[in-house]
Write a protein that binds this DNA or RNA. Structure first.
Length: 446
DNA sequence: TGAAATGTTGGGGCG
DNA sequence: ACGCCCCAACATTTC
């Protein structure tokens, strides 16, 4: 009987250090063999075969492959439907246990349940750990045991829980800081399975071509975090961290970043709390995918105007701040958060187009796309979400520009033809659109 | 992390 | 000096 191995399954946690489930795997008695699966069920649905996120994942996996080779181990890289790949793996290896970090999105929950069933039939334990968030859905609840649906009290409880356990400070109690100080160490590194490097597929082998879009670095200046509250709302300045994609795919640890922000910027830490907030909303209320959190908003009569939606997508609305945002998104896969709110308000309120159209467009374009945060943000903008902006809160693009891009630094960068005959007039009059929106929402909700 | 409409106040021009 | 009006500036209410 060959010696059993523990398989560690990388998914959206593409790093070796401060990785909760990997730590637990290495701490166990069996040698650990890491695995990554290029999931064809996801990849085959992507219409853009130069999707920058696939290039990014491929590079991150390649990096892990190299790091593990240097430790004398390897990364098994497979391609296929995860359940089928797992059936193969159980045939090929004497699997004694499987470890992974929990993923809370509906697709991932389904996928993991099917793998869990498979492993259970084979009497193989499947150990899942918390890694993507600071607090999971049942760790921050109201006193009556129900989930929060309003951010402010949620954040208060979240902070109280954090501070009472000092979980982000080195040397304090489990579970959060535990990983920070415990891995990597040479001792644990020695618990990887020693083997020859397995082959690493090139990008074309998984059906994609490389993207030229650039990815922000994993490092952020301390001064940026310190000044975050003062600079984060100005899209013309480099005042935000742009770490979203790294949180999305786990190329940096959320614990490490929360510890970084702790005591340095409450505003930055607050953004990380928003991330946990929307993650637990999605986990408790999976119906928010596709439906408004507030049911009565399903009655809002969204207009059917594909050509207007197209103008919004392409950044040809005639509102410079809106067009600048959409063009930044189309060109770079990123949009400044302030401008995400402005463009989302414009689509749902000025144009009265369904928030799900905008949500889907952002999902396709944003490198940092995260289902929970994107859905939460869109429902917030449309007024139908948890703790949402009331329906009558309608952003005025001109006022927003005055406040947040007064020198037009941002607008000039993305709409250089502003002022020339090539720039279109506003596709809808602001005062008219505002009135139309108020009446439509009032009728639907009244 | 809203904006517009409406109300209030007080300084200053002017007869 | 006084009353009247205008309006900017700020506050409050409404959508």
């Amino acid at each position: 009987m060959p010696q059993p191995v523990a398989l560690f399954w990388f998914r959206r946690d593409l790093r070796l250090d401060d990785n909760a489930a990997l730590f637990h795997a290495l701490k166990g008695k069996m040698p650990v063999l890491p695995v990554f699966i290029f999931d064809t069920q996801i990849l085959d649905d992507l219409s853009d075969k130069t999707d920058a996120r696939v290039t990014f994942i491929h590079q991150a996996v390649q990096q892990l492959h190299q790091e593990l080779a240097q430790l004398g181990s390897t990364l098994l890289v497979r391609q296929g439907a995860p359940l089928e790949v797992w059936k193969d793996l159980l045939q090929e290896f004497p699997v004694g246990a499987v470890y992974s970090n929990r993923d809370y999105e509906p697709y991932a929950l389904n996928r993991d349940q099917s793998v869990k069933d498979l492993l259970q039939n084979a009497k193989i334990p499947f150990h899942q750990h918390k890694d993507h968030v600071i607090f999971e859905k049942d760790e921050v609840l109201k006193d009556d045991g129900t989930p929060y649906t309003v951010f402010t009290p949620y954040s208060r409880k979240w902070l109280a829980k954090l501070q009472s356990r000092k979980q982000l400070l080195p040397g304090e109690a489990e579970p959060v800081s535990f990983y920070l100080r415990s891995y990597p160490t040479l001792q644990y590194a020695a618990n990887f399975l020693t083997t020859q490097p397995a082959p690493m597929p090139e990008l074309p082998e998984i059906g994609f071509a490389p993207s030229q879009q650039s990815i922000p670095p994993t490092t952020v200046a301390r001064s940026l975090i310190r000044n975050y509250a003062q600079t984060r709302d100005f899209p013309g300045r480099a005042g935000t961290s742009r770490l979203g994609i790294h949180f999305r795919f786990g190329t940096i640890s959320i614990r490490e970043k929360a510890r970084h922000a702790f005591g340095l910027s409450d505003t930055y830490l607050n953004e990380l709390i928003w991330r946990d907030f929307y993650s637990q909303i999605l986990a408790h209320f999976p119906g928010v995918v596709g439906q408004p959190f507030k049911a009565q908003y399903a009655r809002v009569p969204w207009r059917d105007a594909p050509e207007e939606f197209q103008r919004w997508c392409e950044g040809r609305t005639g509102y410079p701040i809106v067009d600048a945002g959409m063009r930044e998104l189309n060109a770079t896969g990123f949009m400044h958060n302030r401008v995400r709110m402005i463009t989302a308000s414009f689509l749902t309120k000025h144009l009265l187009l369904d928030w799900r159209l905008g949500e889907a467009y952002f999902a396709e374009k944003l490198l940092d796309f995260d289902l929970a945060s994107n859905n939460g943000g869109w429902q917030w903008a449309a007024g139908c979400g948890t703790d949402a902006a009331p329906y009558f809160r309608i952003f005025n693009p001109a006022e927003q520009t005055k406040k947040f891009d007064p020198e037009h630094q941002y607008i000039r960068r993305w709409v250089p033809e502003l002022g020339s005959v090539r720039y279109p007039p506003p596709m809808v009059d602001h005062a008219f659109a505002r009135q139309r929106c108020l009446e439509a929402y009032k009728t639907a909700l009244g």
